[in-house]
Design a binder for these strands. Structure first.
Lengths: 144, 144
DNA sequence: CGAGATGCTTGAGCCTGTCAAGCAACGTCG
DNA sequence: CGACGTTGCTTGACAGGCTCAAGCATCTCG
């Protein structure tokens, strides 16, 4: 496979890129009066998908379920989401976006996409980059 | 420039990739008995470069100088680094790696590089990816 | 129906980070 | 030289996010 040197360069680039994106999204998120973890949770709540249990959210956020409870409470306080009981299983709680929550999520996503550093790339470069990253991700995380 | 859709995909991929790398490096870092922030600081301490003031380290870590004091103290406790006064300016403290610190840093870097998800790419793909990322980074952060 | 398992919540405690105040050393200007 | 403002680091008080352990409600299986 590739050389060690190029590999090292790529890791450094990934770190830089990430710190760059973190700084950019921070502004968007704070404009919504949200926390980083709150924004992450909001990001996960796709209105088009089936409602997800809090436990599954904890897995995806890689954190303790009790923590999800706290973050969900914050979103609920702000009127962005509501906890609804699962219709079939009374133990399970699902978190569903309110109308305001959907709009806030839209703004966060749009803000993140709009400030994406990838926008400086042309159409061809973007697709090539997409192809390469897909290769990396598919090879590394067969799960999902 | 590129389409909105591809741009969005790239942002999602970057997030996935980062969470992937975070999980991988976590193991390496914990094996050294280090914290994430301690590892970040260790990462910055290039033995080949000129010693850096604590303030500059704070800038690079994007955190408060007082925080750097605390993290440095932890590294010092573990015998990985020592705080030395700056020869020319008595106010300034520089953080220098000890012998053990250099070795630990080597292991962390080697571990991170060795588990890099980019290793699945061939030589050509790696270089192409490197080229694309360079383009993105240079366009976005003219400073540094 | 009873025992165990599962999911969520609560409270205690830890760790990490920021902020404000203090101290030491430097530079400058009269 | 000496007094003043600046700069760099450190300290202590404090807030915030996270985890762990315990508790409660609900489901499942015998």
């Amino acid at each position: 496979m590739g050389t060690h040197e190029t590999n090292a360069l790529l890791v450094e680039q990934l770190i830089d890129l990430n710190s760059l994106v973190a700084g950019m999204t921070k502004a968007v998120v704070e404009a919504e009066g949200l926390n980083e973890s709150q924004a992450n949770l909001l990001w996960l709540l796709d209105p088009g998908a089936e409602p997800v249990s809090l436990k599954q959210l904890a897995v995806r956020l890689k954190c303790d379920p009790s923590n999800v409870t706290l973050i969900s409470a914050k979103l609920e306080e702000k009127g962005l989401a509501v906890r609804a009981p699962h219709p079939a299983d009374g133990r399970v709680r699902t978190l569903v976006l309110t109308k305001a929550g959907k709009k806030a999520r839209e703004r966060v996503l749009a803000g993140a996409y709009g400030r994406s550093p990838f926008r400086v790339l042309g159409e061809r470069d973007q697709q090539q980059l997409h192809r390469l990253l897909k290769k990396v991700l598919e090879a590394s995380e067969p799960q999902r």
